[in-house]
Design a protein around this nucleic acid. Sequence first.
RNA 1: GGGCGUGUGGCUGAGCAGCAAAGGCAACAGACUGUAAAUCUGUCGGGGUAACCCUUCGUAGGUGCAAGUCCUACCGCGCCCA
Length: 387
Amino acid sequence: MNFKILKKSKLSRARLGFLETEHGVVETPCLVPVATQAVVKTLESKEVQETKSQILISNTFHLHLKPGEKIVEKAGKLHNFMNWKKPLMTDSGGYQVFSLGFGRDFGLGSKLSLGNQTKDKNLLPRFSEVVVGMQPQKIKINNDGVIFRSPINGDELFIGPKESIKIQEKLGADIIFAFDECTPPLADLDYVKKSLEKTHKWAKICLKTKKSKQALYGIVQGSRFKDLRLESAKFIGGLDFDGFGIGGEFGNDKITMSQMVEWVVDELPEKKPRHLLGVGYLEDMELIIKSGVDTFDCTVPTHYARRGIAFTSEGKLNLKQTKFLKKREPLDKNCVCNVCLNYKKDYMCHLLKANEITGMKLLTFHNLFYFNTFVEEIRQRIKKGEI
RNA sequence: GGGCGUGUGGCUGAGCAGCAAAGGCAACAGACUGUAAAUCUGUCGGGGUAACCCUUCGUAGGUGCAAGUCCUACCGCGCCCA
């Protein structure tokens, strides 16, 4: 992999670049749609390409469980397996340390709120913080890695940095990630310190383990603590990674989020690409790109689509609302995607209310196209010197 | 014609003397950021911010302090016997 920076903004940390891989070039900044199980849910690879998606991210943990990396390897690795010719990433499974652990215990996301704090008291965590010595109920984290129970058959399985890298080598994505511990947002300072030691130790093991030509990104953690973020960025940034992921918690609002990203970005080697893990509401994009992020993945366009939420130039629409049954008009007049050119709101509303898979599929297509177009426009604005 | 059974809020379905009435579905509103499709939360007879008030359990009477709940008649539906 080779990363070329074409232009650096004079107004912000934003930059335009080319991420060159064996499977083609990614124009950055770029959204990376999520294909956890080697598929963007509801779409086939050809359709994903038609949404202007340039690169996807699959998941090591999920593919290890099902169908198993050996199957994927025999099929000619991920690209052939899923018939996707363009670049691919795989996430290391580090996030599942969180999502199947404390995240599940407390019903939390890795980002506590980012300003969208829930008003529903029942959804607020029923505890104050995670402290040193606490273990999630379903998994056990030790110094070498994480013991999971397979959600499929209950088998005990172990994934640590070595295991993750070996799996990712078999999966064969262009860009792979180091195995980290994504700390829960409410972990206290001591917990995050200890966790960071592990993540850093694991980072070195990942580098040592990797034998393939795949690009390997290290992951910066440190939660909401500035000194830990800086420490982590310096440490991870000082290692011989091809790029860097930034993960974990980013504070209570969008401004804090971009500040935290900037702390980290300023410590990372300038010439290498930076990937922000799991962030990407529309309103986040300009902020994180201005903070110096080159790529970022987010489940929102695809996940929300399956819940009936459409992102359009008139805002976020809940297409399951009965009122849309009376709207014989395109989802978004200003959108030129296949869905907006060929289907109307009434029909899509009907499909979604009837729980038809095609409803989810049409919305997934539109949302991805819309998000990708949104980022494309941001790239244009950087080119013009507006951002 | 005779016997037994049944009738509950938009639907379904509990309740068998102290109820505005369980549960489910539907509806309505909200949430979701390194994926969770079919999830989570709230509302869901009417009125008021609220303590509270009003109207409901086929219809009409009756017995009780109190009736969706017991009794009588009628109406509708179901099964069985003639």
